[in-house]
């Protein structure tokens, strides 16, 4: 562990965590652009997400009379927890101090913290839509979180460590080895990522129909910079899941050690991988329709089953083999 805790390590961890908040709107813009092209639309410019955030940040905040102080604190807590969770996922290089502060279980815990405050904020004003969104979000979260934990446990059992850097190191050291457990875990994690980031077929980020909303329903009462923080957190979460899938399952290109070349290569590699994942997401969202809300449990049970199969196939087939 001590070799993580170096001064350059802290410096790069700092830079990397700011890259997360800087790049998050870009990924969303990219997905929207690709999706628009697939649907024969021209779509908004790539940088539109940044402009939206800027616009929201400059706007006046409107808060309901019935809102408690929790309503005003929640955007900052959600943003901070999501950002911290993201900071523990290696983006450019591995072996950073952030990975030692918080391992993969803490990452899941921080995301849960953000979700709990999001749901509480949804219930705070006391509108019917807010409660509905919170109830649905917690239902999805309750089923998605165990699936996510099982998927990452498959990786951590292989690496004998819950530290994400060690997991990636192990995967790189193994070379390209086709492990059945990894495929199951990948399947499970992709399904979880779709559900947790509120994408089609579980939730529709662009919906305007309140009764079908999950994530958006909790944000209905937010405006101005509060809304900006919430939106930004959601974008960071998408980037987080994308990076997790890209760098853990396909770690090639990620930098090892602190040098300009490693950082440059790491950045190029992760951007390329995220661009491909973004296209995949856009294609998926174009060809699939949103499910009924009560089909979502079946979707998430599949994710849990896949992840558990991954873990079981690891402990039965791969350990000791």
């Amino acid at each position: 562990m001590d070799h993580y805790l170096t001064l350059p390590g802290w410096g790069i961890a700092f830079v990397q965590s700011f890259l997360y908040i800087a790049l998050a709107p870009l990924l969303v813009g990219w997905v929207r652009k690709v999706k628009a092209r697939l649907q024969n639309r021209r779509g908004a410019p790539l940088l539109q997400a940044y402009r939206d955030l800027y616009k929201l940040l400059a706007k006046e905040v409107r808060v309901a009379h019935t809102a408690s102080p929790l309503f005003r604190a929640a955007p900052y807590i959600v943003f901070t927890a999501t950002w911290m969770a993201a900071a523990t996922v290696p983006l450019l290089v591995v072996d950073l101090p952030t990975a030692a502060i918080a391992d993969i279980i803490v990452l899941v815990g921080l995301l849960a913290l953000a979700r709990v405050f999001l749901a509480l904020a949804g219930m705070d004003v006391g509108t019917a839509f807010g409660g509905m969104g919170a109830s649905r979000e917690m239902m999805i979260g309750a089923l998605a979180e165990p699936a996510m934990l099982m998927a990452v446990f498959t990786l951590t059992m292989t690496a004998h460590s819950t530290n994400l850097s060690s997991v990636i190191d192990q995967h790189l050291a193994d070379g390209f080895m086709l492990r059945p457990s990894y495929l199951f875990a990948l399947g499970g994690l992709v399904l979880v990522a779709i559900a947790e980031t509120g994408r089609i077929p579980v939730d529709n980020p662009t919906t305007h129909l309140e009764l079908t909303m999950i994530h958006e329903a909790m944000l209905l009462e937010y405006s101005g910079r509060h809304l900006a923080m919430m939106e930004w957190a959601a974008q960071i979460k998408l980037l987080l899941y994308g990076t997790l899938i890209a760098n853990v399952f396909l770690p090639w290109g990620i930098g090892r050690g602190v040098s300009a070349a490693a950082l440059g290569l790491g950045l190029a590699a992760v951007l390329a991988k995220l661009a491909v994942l973004g296209v995949a997401l856009a294609v998926g969202e174009t060809v699939l329709a949103k499910m009924r809300i009560f089909r979502a449990p079946a979707f998430l049970n599949l994710a849990l089953l896949l992840s558990l199969l991954g873990l079981l196939s690891h402990v039965i087939l791969e350990v000791g083999a």
Partner: peptide, 28 residues
């Protein structure tokens, strides 16, 4: 691992339960 899956599911359901408690009793 099956036990830890149960534990993970439990943990997530606890969060849902107590969001219900806090959201209904203290908020709104």
């Amino acid at each position: 691992p099956i036990v830890s899956a149960v534990l993970a599911l439990t943990g997530a359901l606890v969060a849902a339960t107590f969001v219900k408690v806090y959201g209904v009793a203290f908020l709104g």
